[in-house]
Protein backbone atom coordinates (compact mmCIF):
# COMPACT_ATOMS: atom_id res chain seq x y z
CA UNK A 1 0.00 0.00 0.00
CA UNK A 2 2.78 2.40 0.88
CA UNK A 3 5.03 1.82 -2.08
CA UNK A 4 2.96 3.52 -4.79
CA UNK A 5 2.37 6.63 -2.70
CA UNK A 6 5.93 6.99 -1.41
CA UNK A 7 7.55 6.50 -4.79
CA UNK A 8 6.00 9.51 -6.49
CA UNK A 9 6.63 11.54 -3.33
CA UNK A 10 10.32 10.68 -3.50
CA UNK A 11 10.46 11.46 -7.20
CA UNK A 12 8.59 14.68 -6.57
CA UNK A 13 10.95 15.65 -3.76
CA UNK A 14 13.91 15.04 -6.05
CA UNK A 15 12.36 17.16 -8.78
CA UNK A 16 11.78 20.03 -6.35
CA UNK A 17 15.20 19.86 -4.72
CA UNK A 18 17.56 22.78 -5.17
CA UNK A 19 20.03 21.98 -7.94
CA UNK A 20 23.39 21.54 -6.24
CA UNK A 21 24.32 22.37 -2.70
CA UNK A 22 22.53 25.01 -0.62
CA UNK A 23 25.84 26.14 0.90
CA UNK A 24 27.19 26.88 -2.55
CA UNK A 25 24.04 28.89 -3.24
CA UNK A 26 24.72 30.88 -0.08
CA UNK A 27 28.20 31.65 -1.41
CA UNK A 28 26.71 32.65 -4.78
CA UNK A 29 24.15 34.91 -3.12
CA UNK A 30 26.80 36.63 -0.99
CA UNK A 31 29.01 37.09 -4.02
CA UNK A 32 26.21 38.52 -6.11
CA UNK A 33 25.34 40.94 -3.31
CA UNK A 34 28.94 42.13 -3.39
CA UNK A 35 28.80 42.67 -7.12
CA UNK A 36 25.48 44.53 -6.78
CA UNK A 37 27.37 46.90 -4.51
CA UNK A 38 30.10 47.25 -7.13
CA UNK A 39 27.43 48.25 -9.66
CA UNK A 40 26.08 50.84 -7.24
CA UNK A 41 29.54 52.29 -6.59
CA UNK A 42 30.12 52.50 -10.34
CA UNK A 43 26.78 54.20 -11.01
CA UNK A 44 27.38 56.77 -8.27
CA UNK A 45 30.86 57.50 -9.63
CA UNK A 46 29.52 57.79 -13.17
CA UNK A 47 26.78 60.22 -12.13
CA UNK A 48 29.41 62.43 -10.51
CA UNK A 49 31.79 62.51 -13.47
CA UNK A 50 29.84 61.50 -16.59
CA UNK A 51 32.29 63.12 -19.01
CA UNK A 52 35.28 61.13 -17.74
CA UNK A 53 33.30 57.91 -17.88
CA UNK A 54 32.05 58.62 -21.39
CA UNK A 55 35.47 59.54 -22.73
CA UNK A 56 37.01 56.45 -21.12
CA UNK A 57 34.29 54.11 -22.35
CA UNK A 58 35.11 55.20 -25.90
CA UNK A 59 38.54 53.55 -25.48
CA UNK A 60 36.99 50.12 -24.85
CA UNK A 61 36.24 47.70 -27.65
CA UNK A 62 32.66 46.46 -27.20
CA UNK A 63 33.11 43.80 -29.88
CA UNK A 64 35.47 41.96 -27.51
CA UNK A 65 32.88 42.34 -24.76
CA UNK A 66 30.22 40.82 -27.00
CA UNK A 67 32.55 38.00 -27.95
CA UNK A 68 33.10 37.21 -24.27
CA UNK A 69 29.36 37.30 -23.62
CA UNK A 70 28.82 34.68 -26.32
CA UNK A 71 31.74 32.58 -25.07
CA UNK A 72 30.36 32.49 -21.53
CA UNK A 73 26.80 31.80 -22.70
CA UNK A 74 27.99 28.90 -24.87
CA UNK A 75 30.09 27.52 -22.04
CA UNK A 76 27.12 27.86 -19.67
CA UNK A 77 24.89 25.97 -22.09
CA UNK A 78 27.43 23.13 -22.28
CA UNK A 79 27.37 22.94 -18.47
CA UNK A 80 23.57 22.57 -18.54
CA UNK A 81 23.99 19.70 -21.00
CA UNK A 82 26.51 18.15 -18.59
CA UNK A 83 24.05 18.39 -15.70
CA UNK A 84 21.24 16.92 -17.82
CA UNK A 85 23.48 14.00 -18.80
CA UNK A 86 24.52 13.41 -15.18
CA UNK A 87 20.88 13.31 -14.08
CA UNK A 88 20.40 10.44 -16.52
CA UNK A 89 23.61 8.88 -15.16
CA UNK A 90 25.33 9.28 -18.50
CA UNK A 91 28.59 10.17 -16.82
CA UNK A 92 30.93 10.10 -19.79
CA UNK A 93 28.63 12.43 -21.75
CA UNK A 94 28.55 14.70 -18.70
CA UNK A 95 32.33 14.67 -18.54
CA UNK A 96 32.68 15.49 -22.25
CA UNK A 97 30.37 18.47 -21.83
CA UNK A 98 32.25 19.74 -18.79
CA UNK A 99 35.54 19.53 -20.68
CA UNK A 100 33.94 21.32 -23.64
CA UNK A 101 32.55 23.99 -21.31
CA UNK A 102 36.02 24.56 -19.84
CA UNK A 103 37.70 24.68 -23.25
CA UNK A 104 35.16 27.14 -24.66
CA UNK A 105 35.37 29.10 -21.41
CA UNK A 106 39.13 29.44 -21.82
CA UNK A 107 38.38 31.63 -24.83
CA UNK A 108 37.23 34.22 -22.30
CA UNK A 109 40.74 34.28 -20.82
CA UNK A 110 42.31 34.67 -24.25
CA UNK A 111 40.08 37.63 -25.11
CA UNK A 112 40.63 39.18 -21.70
CA UNK A 113 44.41 38.79 -21.91
CA UNK A 114 44.37 40.38 -25.37
CA UNK A 115 42.18 43.22 -24.10
CA UNK A 116 44.20 43.93 -20.94
CA UNK A 117 47.42 43.82 -22.94
CA UNK A 118 46.08 46.30 -25.51
CA UNK A 119 44.95 48.69 -22.77
CA UNK A 120 48.19 48.52 -20.80
CA UNK A 121 50.33 48.97 -23.91
CA UNK A 122 48.37 52.18 -24.59
CA UNK A 123 49.31 53.35 -21.12
CA UNK A 124 45.83 52.81 -19.69
CA UNK A 125 46.16 51.37 -16.19
CA UNK A 126 44.35 51.00 -12.89
CA UNK A 127 45.29 54.54 -11.97
CA UNK A 128 44.43 56.32 -15.25
CA UNK A 129 41.11 57.53 -13.85
CA UNK A 130 38.18 56.31 -11.80
CA UNK A 131 36.48 54.63 -14.74
CA UNK A 132 39.55 52.50 -15.42
CA UNK A 133 40.03 51.78 -11.73
CA UNK A 134 36.59 50.19 -11.74
CA UNK A 135 37.11 48.64 -15.15
CA UNK A 136 40.26 46.81 -14.02
CA UNK A 137 39.06 46.09 -10.50
CA UNK A 138 35.63 44.72 -11.39
CA UNK A 139 36.67 42.82 -14.48
CA UNK A 140 39.77 41.66 -12.55
CA UNK A 141 37.71 40.32 -9.64
CA UNK A 142 35.31 38.79 -12.13
CA UNK A 143 38.28 37.22 -13.90
CA UNK A 144 39.49 35.83 -10.56
CA UNK A 145 36.06 34.19 -10.16
CA UNK A 146 36.43 32.86 -13.69
CA UNK A 147 39.85 31.32 -12.92
CA UNK A 148 38.48 29.62 -9.80
CA UNK A 149 35.61 28.38 -11.97
CA UNK A 150 37.96 26.83 -14.52
CA UNK A 151 39.80 25.05 -11.69
CA UNK A 152 36.47 23.79 -10.33
CA UNK A 153 35.56 22.50 -13.81
CA UNK A 154 38.91 20.71 -14.00
CA UNK A 155 38.20 18.99 -10.67
CA UNK A 156 34.65 18.25 -11.78
CA UNK A 157 35.71 16.43 -14.93
CA UNK A 158 38.14 14.34 -12.84
CA UNK A 159 35.29 13.41 -10.48
CA UNK A 160 33.11 12.50 -13.46
CA UNK A 161 35.76 10.10 -14.67
CA UNK A 162 35.07 8.02 -11.54
CA UNK A 163 31.48 8.99 -10.65
CA UNK A 164 29.98 8.27 -7.23
CA UNK A 165 26.30 8.71 -8.10
CA UNK A 166 24.34 11.29 -6.11
CA UNK A 167 27.46 12.81 -4.56
CA UNK A 168 29.03 13.51 -7.95
CA UNK A 169 25.75 14.83 -9.35
CA UNK A 170 25.43 17.36 -6.51
CA UNK A 171 29.05 18.41 -6.99
CA UNK A 172 28.44 18.90 -10.71
CA UNK A 173 25.24 20.88 -10.12
CA UNK A 174 27.03 23.10 -7.60
CA UNK A 175 29.93 23.68 -9.98
CA UNK A 176 27.43 24.50 -12.73
CA UNK A 177 25.58 26.98 -10.49
CA UNK A 178 28.87 28.76 -9.73
CA UNK A 179 29.79 28.78 -13.42
CA UNK A 180 26.41 30.29 -14.31
CA UNK A 181 27.03 33.01 -11.72
CA UNK A 182 30.30 33.94 -13.46
CA UNK A 183 28.27 34.11 -16.67
CA UNK A 184 25.41 36.22 -15.31
CA UNK A 185 27.67 38.75 -13.56
CA UNK A 186 29.30 39.36 -16.91
CA UNK A 187 25.82 40.02 -18.36
CA UNK A 188 25.74 43.19 -16.23
CA UNK A 189 29.44 44.07 -16.37
CA UNK A 190 29.46 44.08 -20.17
CA UNK A 191 26.66 46.63 -20.79
CA UNK A 192 27.63 48.65 -17.72
CA UNK A 193 31.27 49.11 -18.69
CA UNK A 194 31.17 48.93 -22.49
CA UNK A 195 27.77 50.12 -23.67
CA UNK A 196 25.20 51.99 -21.64
CA UNK A 197 25.93 55.42 -20.23
CA UNK A 198 27.16 56.81 -23.51
CA UNK A 199 30.52 57.45 -25.09
CA UNK A 200 32.08 60.79 -25.85
Amino acid sequence: MYAPSTMPAETRKKALALPGDEGVFFFITADMAMFALFFLVFMVGQAQAPDIYRASRAALDPTLGLLNTLILATSGWLMVRAVDAARRERWSAARRNVIAAALVGLGFAVTKAFEYHAKISHGITLNTNEFFTYYYAFTGLHFFHFVIGVLVLAITQAKLAAPEGEKTRIWLESAAAYWHMVDLLWMVLFPMLYLAGGTA
Binding site: E22, F26, F27, A30, D31, M34, L126, F144, I148
Partner: peptide
Amino acid sequence: KWVCWYSIWVGFMFIAECFMPF
Protein backbone atom coordinates in the same frame (compact mmCIF):
# COMPACT_ATOMS: atom_id res chain seq x y z
CA LYS B 1 26.45 24.93 5.80
CA TRP B 2 25.82 28.61 5.32
CA VAL B 3 28.34 29.47 8.07
CA CYS B 4 30.95 27.26 6.41
CA TRP B 5 30.35 28.93 3.09
CA TYR B 6 30.31 32.36 4.68
CA SER B 7 33.75 31.58 6.06
CA ILE B 8 35.00 30.46 2.65
CA TRP B 9 33.46 33.49 0.99
CA VAL B 10 35.05 35.99 3.41
CA GLY B 11 38.44 34.37 2.87
CA PHE B 12 37.84 34.57 -0.87
CA MET B 13 36.64 38.20 -0.95
CA PHE B 14 39.65 39.35 1.06
CA ILE B 15 41.54 39.27 -2.22
CA ALA B 16 40.09 42.74 -2.91
CA GLU B 17 42.70 43.97 -0.38
CA CYS B 18 45.25 43.51 -3.16
CA PHE B 19 43.93 46.71 -4.77
CA MET B 20 44.62 48.81 -1.69
CA PRO B 21 48.30 49.72 -2.33
CA PHE B 22 47.40 51.10 -5.75
